[in-house]
Amino acid sequence: MNKQKSFDKAIETGRLYLVPTPIGNLQDMTFRAIDTLKEAAVIASEDTRNTQKLLNHFQVTTPQISFHEHNYKERIPKLVERLLAGESVAQVSDAGMPSISDPGHELVVACLVAEIPVVALPGATAGVTALIASGMSAEKFTFYGFLNRKKNLQLKELATLQHKRETLIFYESPYRLKATFANMVAVFGEERQGSLCRELTKLHEEYIRGTLGEILSYLLENEIKGECCILVAGFAGELVAETENDWSDWSILEHIEEEMSQNRLNSKEAIKQVAKLRGLKKQEVYKVYHQET
């Protein structure tokens, strides 16, 4: 167990500050974030050139060190060493909150192991910003981030989310939007409500709301540029598991094959689902499937 009192004066180490940066509009930078960057001994930045523009705008002269997905393993020991020596480090990504589809998590874990306080500052994050203006339920949601780029793997990922009741949030490149929405239509159906948000907080901010089918049709006729966020409404239908055993007359093998066909699951996922629905041990269902196929 780890108990952290972030601002205990008895702490002798430095602190790791996770500092959010604007996702577009520089006016979204908070006073506290600016002060933290100024007071830190060093800023660990995903892209030092990009962050330098932000620092120049707010007259921050703190030195930077690059910290990204390609060098974090070699950077972490050096940063932890500085923190243990009493220096504070501010970590930033190119936009939004560190660790949310951006570098940061591994450094946080290393600091917790070394019993170094980790302090997160609140600030902008694209997914939640898009959610509250999407028109879809914001009470419960799942942030998924980026889907797999390969079609078959993306379809499998979407299939695992098909019956989620909460709003789904994804990030996507504008170059892959058409393919991704086509896959979403294939899995979720063209009538499921969705929202495509681009260039959030910037001059050309735009929301495209409608069914997934309508949005796909729009994309096939129009080119989209800029940073994009996709929201998909939660499943509102009736699950097989919520009916009175519609599968009761099926054999276990038939049930597995139906799960694979209707819900686009692989055999391992289908076996797990059938075992759950029937109240059986997964090993029992596994044996039946592999003995009969």
Rank of each mutant, 00 (worst) to 15 (best):
R149V: 01
M184L: 04
A120Y: 10
E106C: 07
D35K: 15
F141I: 09
I230H: 06
A120Q: 09
H163L: 04
V80N: 07
T211Y: 02
E139F: 10
L54A: 11
V285P: 14
L54C: 11
H57D: 07
V288Y: 04
F146Q: 06
V232R: 01
E157I: 06
Q262Y: 13
M29L: 12
T36V: 15
P103N: 07
A236T: 09
P77M: 07
Y218A: 11
V232Q: 00
V119I: 15
Y17K: 08
M260T: 08
V128C: 06
M184A: 02
L79R: 05
N263P: 01
K287A: 12
A85W: 04
S101N: 13
I230C: 02
W250P: 01
C111T: 06
K225P: 01
F146N: 03
P77K: 05
L161Q: 08
E205L: 09
Q91R: 09
F67L: 05
V42L: 15
Q4V: 10
K202M: 14
R209G: 00
E244T: 15
T48C: 10
H105S: 13
H204F: 15
T51F: 11
L121S: 05
K281F: 12
Y17V: 06
I34T: 12
N266K: 13
E46T: 09
D246N: 08
H68P: 01
A10F: 07
Y289W: 13
L16D: 04
D249C: 13
D102R: 09
D246C: 11
E199Q: 13
Q273R: 15
E258Y: 15
I230N: 07
K272L: 09
Y144S: 03
V108A: 04
L196D: 07
V92S: 03
E223V: 13
R198D: 03
I230A: 05
V232A: 03
L18H: 07
R165P: 04
G135H: 12
C228L: 08
L216V: 08
E166V: 02
Y17F: 15
